[in-house]
Design a protein around this nucleic acid. Sequence first.
DNA 1: CGGTTTCGACAACCACGTTGACCAGTTTAC
DNA 2: GTAAACTGGTCAACGTGGTTGTCGAAACCG
Lengths: 155, 155
Amino acid sequence: MAEADPPGYELPLLLFAGFRSLIDELHRELAAHGHTEVRPVHGFALQAIGPYGASASEIGRRLGVSKQAAGKTVDRLAALGYVERADDPTDARRKLIRLTPRGLDVLTRSAEIFDRLRATWVDRLGAAQVNQLETSLRTVVPPTTFPVDVPGWFG
Amino acid sequence: MAEADPPGYELPLLLFAGFRSLIDELHRELAAHGHTEVRPVHGFALQAIGPYGASASEIGRRLGVSKQAAGKTVDRLAALGYVERADDPTDARRKLIRLTPRGLDVLTRSAEIFDRLRATWVDRLGAAQVNQLETSLRTVVPPTTFPVDVPGWFG
DNA sequence: CGGTTTCGACAACCACGTTGACCAGTTTAC
DNA sequence: GTAAACTGGTCAACGTGGTTGTCGAAACCG
C-alpha cells in the first residue's frame, strides 16, 4: 500500500530548518574567529562583490535589490571594515567596491566552514545521500533564482 | 578515486533556493485567491496562532521573538483582517488573538497549496526521492529549531 | 495582605528594504 | 560636435519587522 506522505508544509519547513542550521553554524564559527558583526545578508553581498570588486549598482543587480539598498549595505560593510570604496579611473561616476583583507578573510573562512559543515552531513547521512539530496534539489529549483537573487523577499 | 564533491556553499544555496521557490509559489497562489497582502512572516504568525487562538506573548514565544514584535505583527494581521483581538474573560490582562474566517482561509489554502507543490516535486523526482530528501533533512536538522522558532534570524 | 511575575502597550531606536528626485558623468544619435 | 538619453551614486522620506526599556494593571503566590 501507499506510504503515508507527510503533509506538504513539512517540506518547506525542513528545507528552511536545514538552511538555517547551516547558516547559524556558519555565523557561530565566524564569530569565534572575530567576525562577530557580520550578518547573513552581508555574506550574500560580499559574495556578490567577489574578488574583483563591483560597483554598488552591480551589487544591487546581482542581489536583486535597488541600487540604493545596495549602497546602504556597502556603507555598512565599509563601516565594519569588510570593503572599501575606490574611484574608478575609467569612469568618474563609478565607485569600485573592493574587499579588504578582512572581507576576503570572511569569504575564505566561510568556504572552509561550509566545506566542514557539509562533511558533517556526509558523516551522518553518507556521501551518497548528500549527493542525492543535492541533485534532487538541483533538479527542482528554478534556475533563474540561482545562485544569487536572494534577499529582500522575506521582509 | 573520490567523486568530485561540490563546494560546501552549494548545499545551503540549494536548500534556500528550494525553500524560496516553494514560498514564492505559495504566495503567488495565495495572491491569485485574493490574499495579496499577506507575507511570509504573516504565515508563520498565523500558524503560531493556530485554530484555538493565542495571546500575543505566546505568539512571540512560539516564534522566538519579543512580545512587542509579536504585538506589532498582530496589529498588522488585524489591520489586514486575518485576526481579531478579544478580551479573555479569565484574565483581564490577556487579549486572545483569534483567526478570522479570512485568516483560517489563508491557512487551509496554504495547506492545500503546499500539498500540491509537494506533488509536483513527486512528479519530477519520484515519491522515493522526495521521501528520501525529507528523511535526510529530518536527521540532520537540530530538533530544537523545529518546527517553529523561525523569524528574526535573517535581519 | 504584599511582593513578584506576567500581559499588553508606548516610545525610541536600528537594520534593511522601497520610491522618487537630483546631479554629474558617459553614451548614443543625429 | 552637440543635444538627448542613459547610468552611477547619493539624499530624503517612508514602510516593515525587529530590538530594548518602561510602565500600569492584573494575576499569582508566599
